[in-house]
Nucleic acid binder design. Structure first.
Length: 271
DNA sequence: ATGGTCGACTCTCGA
């Protein structure tokens, strides 16, 4: 017998994806072919790089998705497209600290699932103010979880989180100890969020090495040589992680002509 | 290899 939520019918199977598109409008041909397969129910996007007045709403609506978005010119921007109704939509942290982070943070509810889609600041360098902002971003996420959620609920934090959780999640980690996505400081910041009660959904299903979501444009033939980083993630509360049935990297999207430097990562749930 | 390549936009930055 399937697990029943308290507030309605069970969702059944739900496929969720996260994709840093590095400019939504330049990636529409890839999204077109991908969404045409009709298998993605909820899609979190990051780095849309489009102002709200120019957001291609019709593209999603014409393909059966509701869409919520907050972006700016040239940088940042997040969106969620969903085939199921989205409620409780909110941008930013709602903590009054920094309204400028709205294009990096969107929350919504789909069925009984509380979704947090983030584009965590990359940080530039360990001694750069943006890195302090990045660490603070994780702290504020922890505070948001404590304020608005419970580890017993179905909570999913996903997105380009710009952190390599373990040495197995990047090629040549020994050369990257001072990198803002690898340094022990950012890993501790992530761990502090996860200790609230979140689990790596991808690793639950895929324990092997060499699975990445980002390959640097500047490394020659990085995809073919599989020199990459796993920085796009799904972190779920225990009940939701237990309801996950699989996860995988959509590697083919990265092979397409004019791809993003990231590719999509997919997680399946049976709720 | 402090290189390399994209995308948006300005002659440079962010990743």
């Amino acid at each position: 017998m399937g697990k029943r939520r308290g507030d309605g019918d069970p969702l059944g199977r739900l496929r969720v994806a996260t994709f840093n598109v590095n400019s939504l409008r330049s990636r529409l041909p890839i999204l077109e072919r991908w969404l045409l397969q009709g298998e993605v129910d909820v899609l979190g996007l990051q780095e849309t790089k489009v102002e709200d007045r120019s957001f291609p709403e019709d593209f999603f609506r014409d393909r059966g998705y509701e869409v919520i978005f907050r972006g700016q010119k040239a940088y940042n921007g997040v969106a969620v497209a969903s085939r199921l109704p989205m409620t409780e939509v909110a941008f930013g942290f709602g903590d009054g600290e920094s309204p400028g982070d709205e294009p990096r943070m969107v929350r919504c509810t789909v069925g009984g699932m509380k979704i947090i889609n983030s584009y965590v600041p990359q940080g530039k360098a360990l001694d750069h103010p943006d890195y302090a902002y990045k660490l603070r971003f994780f702290q504020r996420l922890r505070a948001l979880l404590e304020r608005d959620h419970r580890p017993e609920d179905f909570v999913l934090w996903m997105g380009d989180l710009n952190v390599v959780p373990t040495d197995r999640d990047v090629t040549h980690p020994e050369n990257k100890r001072q990198h803002v996505c690898v340094h022990e400081g950012v890993r501790m910041a992530l761990e502090d969020v996860l200790s609230w009660g979140l689990e790596d959904v991808f690793r639950r299903h895929r324990p092997g090495d060499g699975e990445f979501s980002f390959w640097d444009y500047r490394v020659p033939r990085a995809l073919e040589r599989n020199i990459g980083w796993r920085i796009d993630h799904f972190f779920a509360t225990s009940p939701l992680a237990r309801a996950s049935t699989g996860a995988f990297v959509e590697r083919e999207l990265r092979r397409e002509e004019r791809p993003s430097d990231h590719t999509a990562v997919v997680a399946d749930f049976s709720l």
